[in-house]
Write a protein that binds this DNA or RNA. Structure first.
Lengths: 264, 264
DNA sequence: GACACTCCCGAAGAAATCCTGAAGATGTCC
DNA sequence: GGACATCTTCAGGATTTCTTCGGGAGTGTC
């Protein structure tokens, strides 16, 4: 039985290119060229995965995504969003409408294939959001569990598993100081042990990846004798910080952030 | 069991938008369109979180917030304040009247979600300052155990553990003279020893952080031969003192208050 | 005013906590 | 096995916080 994929994309060239590749890869592909038809087809066929372009006529991708999530019949279908990153912040912060993964144009067809298969695999073993596999967004930060990535001021930052969990833990308690014991329980699953040293190292790694100047943390603050506290910018602060972030990134080699991160 | 949220907002469009999103996110939402109804519903339902708009007919948000805090039955419900103004002034005065978190319009619905969930999680947080976990407020002073901070005349002041405990101890006995032996027992856990010298130093630190002129204490007074006594301004005195505080802060380098405090 | 007592100040030592850099340990992929 | 990424552990140093101490100022009593 071939897995069924719903492809919602208005540009016909792109649509046929992608659809052809998927069909050649052994998938059944349903096509839609706007949001309305997309929603109808999603209900009609109950596809295994939905590929959703962000820019769509009639109903845009974000709205459609939310609608699909709201409807019980389509709520648990994995959605892969296709977008042009680096545009307005609204798009990035809009990932929270319930997508499971994303892909930026232009993308490699093989990479698309890999991601679709990953989504299919995941929906088999983890029927619903068992832990956190939903995209979570807050201001200038977006966490994408599917690819262990943080989109931070419009640029993807690769994280390790523990770094991701740690950041997730702090984000869930944004503005609050989180005690080491709680972090250990949530991220490591430890009990009343106190291996605080390990936390420190991972916090440092997060800082080198996110902070403009890791020596003087702006966002991941430490509260002496109490724990760590995440303080993300909101509203106007985001726009005000953008030049700072850009400059900091230009100063540091990009590879130090994207790949090595801590060792380099 | 769904967590219950009380949403107090006069603008009906905004109210339904937020309420819908929260309900979709798995919350029970009670709605109120003015301060009076809001207070009534808070008592009736005992919600887990209260979303409170600042601009309200009948009773404004700040006043309502203070009232809710004063009433034993609603005192420990987390309050998330929503306002159109982004000025930090309003923000801290929001905290000052007892709010736990703060959001400015326009805000991202997902961000609201994260904050609400963070507030719900508060109960499980590890108490930072050993015993006290709840925001304690009196006039122009608010103690936030969450961050080991005191909001003092609309400006956050970072405290150390002992400073916080000491101030907390004095605030709980506001207007009374607290004997050193009692302070030692409450803050240090000592018994009838007399290490009064240590107390003096910490009182001094508090004074350098809070008093306009630490040499002539206005608020943390010493009662010769008896102990210390906290006397905070009330009512009109607060407004009268604000220019004094502002001037004192401008005269001293900000870093001396926020960071070093005592050593510098 | 002399005296004992209490309190404030500055600073320096002690202790706790945190950061840094780097080295092992482990697991994965080719 | 070797290259690589990740996680943990550790020692040294920097920072923050807490305590202690001597000198001096203030307070109350005789």
């Amino acid at each position: 039985m071939k897995p069924c994929i719903l492809l919602i994309e208005d540009d016909s060239d792109m649509r046929e290119l992608v659809a052809g590749h998927l069909e050649h890869g052994g998938f059944d592909v349903q096509r839609a060229d706007d949001g309305i038809k997309g929603q109808a087809l999603a209900l009609q066929y109950g596809p295994d995965v939905i590929l959703l372009d962000l820019m769509l006529p009639k109903v845009d991708g974000l709205t459609l995504c939310q609608r699909l999530r709201r409807d019980e019949r389509t709520a648990r279908i994995p959605i892969l969003m296709i977008t042009a990153l680096g545009g307005t912040k609204d798009k990035v912060s809009g990932f929270n409408s319930g997508a499971d993964d994303y892909l930026t144009k232009p993308f490699d067809l093989e990479e698309l294939m890999v991601r679709v298969k990953a989504l299919l695999r995941r929906s088999e073993r983890a029927p619903l959001s068992s832990k956190h596999n939903e995209i979570l967004s807050f201001g200038s930060l977006t966490l994408v569990p599917e690819r262990l990535e943080a989109i931070w001021f419009d640029e993807p930052v690769r994280l390790t598993h523990l770094e991701f969990e740690l950041l997730h833990c702090l984000l869930q308690r944004h503005g609050q100081t989180v005690a080491p014991s709680l972090i250990l329980k949530e991220v490591w699953g430890y009990e009343p042990d106190d291996d605080i040293e390990t936390i420190r190292v991972h916090v440092r790694h997060l800082r080198t990846k996110l902070e403009p100047d890791p020596r003087k943390p702006r966002f991941i603050k430490t509260v002496y004798g109490a724990g760590y506290c995440l303080e993300l910018p909101t509203g106007d602060q985001i726009a005000a910080l953008e030049p700072v972030m850009r400059e900091a990134r230009a100063a540091r080699p990009a590879q130090a952030r994207a790949k090595g991160g801590q060792a380099a």
